[in-house]
């Protein structure tokens, strides 16, 4: 039980920042984006490749620049033009799935399909009455990212503007701010957090092309249940969703985890549909 709690703390520290930036992306751009999954896998692959030889700072910087380039280019070349052509949210969602598949296959050709870890010691970081894995060092990294995100949302003008853009883009523009520029800023935050999360996750989950897909599904679940990302409820739900996922992983074999996770999301959507029906 205690070991499970340690693992849960590690995974919460690693996955919560991802769920938060997924929520931020949805709130600011008003659409889900599957591409964030393979962008995260790209960051992991770069971190795993560069960490042993070039060090953490170079690895994070390279991952940040690569993820930012992917997000900005996809936005400029694909998703923003689709919006201008009047494509609906579900149509653009499908395009993000296509972009995600494309990047996953590029990663698969470039880095291979097997799970890779950076060369690090497998000795437990702390051996006391329980064994703290080396991955426990990810906890402070995750906490730092969470504190930084909370500070940006609640203590800075930039955070307030991002929240305002998510609430009402038309009024945001009427006040003289550029939605496109602030969407760019949001994508920069997303890329930075993904790169920083990757440095913590590289030792724990390893890098492989589909590493981010399950996390995107957790992100959808969190957004459906938790509402806007800047509210405390979102963080609570994110931790709850990760706990649920960890519990399922601990109790059931790996292949059943996929079944339970996607069934949970499907049930939530069914519930939302039935609520909408009764409201009508």
């Amino acid at each position: 039980m205690i070991q499970w709690l340690v693992n849960f703390a590690v995974m919460t520290a690693l996955q919560t920042p991802f769920l938060i930036v997924l929520g931020l992306h949805y709130d600011v751009l008003r659409r889900h984006n599957f591409l964030l999954g393979s962008a995260y896998a790209l960051a992991l692959c770069l971190v795993v490749g560069l960490l042993p030889s070039a060090g953490a700072i170079v690895a994070v910087a390279a991952a940040f620049l690569a993820v930012l380039a992917v997000l900005l280019l996809s936005e400029i070349l694909v998703f923003a033009p689709l919006e201008r052509f009047g494509r609906t949210a579900d149509e653009i969602l499908i395009a993000t799935l296509g972009a995600n598949i494309l990047l996953e296959q590029v990663l698969s050709v470039a880095f291979g399909d097997r799970i890779r870890f950076p060369s690090v010691s497998s000795e437990p970081a702390v051996q006391w009455f329980l064994s703290l894995p080396p991955a426990a060092s990810a906890i402070p990294v995750g906490l730092a990212i969470l504190v930084a995100c909370a500070a940006v949302f609640h203590r800075t003008e930039a955070g307030a503007r991002l929240v305002a853009l998510g609430e009402n883009a038309l009024l945001f523009r009427a006040l003289g701010f550029s939605p496109a520029a602030w969407r760019g800023i949001a994508l920069t935050i997303v890329a930075l957090v993904l790169a920083c999360s990757a440095i913590g996750a590289a030792n724990v989950t390893g890098a492989y092309p589909t590493a981010g897909f399950g996390l995107v599904i957790l992100g959808f679940l969190t957004r459906l249940l938790g509402g806007p990302v800047h509210r405390p409820r979102f963080l609570l739900i994110a931790v709850g969703v990760i706990a649920f996922d960890q519990l399922v992983s601990a109790v059931l074999p790996g292949q059943w985890r996929t079944l339970v996770l996607f069934s949970a999301l499907l049930l939530l959507i069914i519930r939302r549909s039935l609520v909408a029906r009764s409201a009508d």
């Binding site: 659409r31 889900h32 609906t88 949210a89 579900d90 969602l93 499908i94 799935l97 959808f220 292949q255 059943w256 996929t258 079944l259 996607f262 069934s263 999301l265 499907l266 959507i269 069914i270 939302r272 549909s273 039935l274 909408a276 029906r277 009508d280």
Partner: peptide
């Protein structure tokens, strides 16, 4: 069951159906 959902919800639901069937 999902006929009244939002359109992007319906896309995600169809993805779930796809994955759940294969997982089964």
């Amino acid at each position: 069951l999902i006929g009244r959902g939002r359109r992007d919800d319906q896309v995600i639901a169809s993805l779930c159906v796809q994955v759940v069937v294969v997982a089964l």
